[in-house]
Design a protein around this nucleic acid. Structure first.
Lengths: 123, 123
DNA sequence: CAAACGTTTTAAGATAATTTGAAATACTTG
DNA sequence: CAAGTATTTCAAATTATCTTAAAACGTTTG
């Protein structure tokens, strides 16, 4: 990975002080990790889904309760739940007719990152 | 916000122990905050953009250097830079012909959250 | 000032995510 | 087992995001 033909001299100096461009690149996550992270952010990139995540962080819930909280049609809600499930952020157990959703450990971890960040999310 | 007509009894008990559904809802971020958070996650929901973020966390860079790192066409790169700028994750200063991009404080904060999480991102 | 350079913008097309309503599933109860 | 309830799936329509190539912009250099 050569540097471009011309770059600002002070930038070039900084890069050399860090052991060159290859050395810098070796510190950034590989493509597979980046894609995995991107997928998590994607799952959390919708306010409906975030609302579900934050609610489940307080209290596990059947779909009919989530429906009430979000004022969504079942089919729409189910679509969003599926996305959160696919990202391994939530899980559920069947209880008779009910599906009781709750956060996975990973989901809990992510929500708590957001909570810590919430002051900063305001910028 | 009434509870649904029928929900599992043990869930209902949990909710009452937490002071009722209204009390639980009062702990979740308001719609505006949720949308802001969703927007940040959206900006970070693409592996190209994450790569740029992680690179800039190591080293500020002109667009031509980022082009080299990402193997992207300028127009495509510029599109993604614009999204990161709009989310206030990166900024730049002009230096002659060059635009030198770097993370904002907020951007740095977000990348560092991701880094801390990277072990968990693997699940 | 013309040519070159680094970068951004634009508009069109391609792809992906979301919404909607209807139908399907699966469990429970009378 | 028929009817009811909770939930999911499906396919079609809508909307949002991403990609591409060409053109435009502003700065520098000969």
């Amino acid at each position: 990975m050569p540097l471009p033909d011309n770059i600002p001299a002070d930038m070039e100096r900084e890069i050399n002080e860090k052991g060159g461009i290859e050395s810098i690149i070796s510190n950034i996550p590989d493509e597979k990790s980046l894609e995995k992270m991107a997928g998590i952010h994607q799952a959390l990139s919708d306010s409906i889904r975030l609302k579900i995540m934050f609610f489940l962080h307080e209290q596990r819930a059947c779909v009919c309760l989530l429906r009430q909280i979000t004022s969504l049609a079942y089919s729409k809600l189910s679509y969003h739940l599926k996305i959160l499930r696919a990202a391994d952020l939530i899980t559920y157990e069947k209880n008779g007719n009910y599906a009781i959703y709750s956060l996975t450990d990973f989901g809990r971890f992510c929500v708590e990152k957001c909570v810590t960040a919430s002051g900063n999310y305001k910028r």
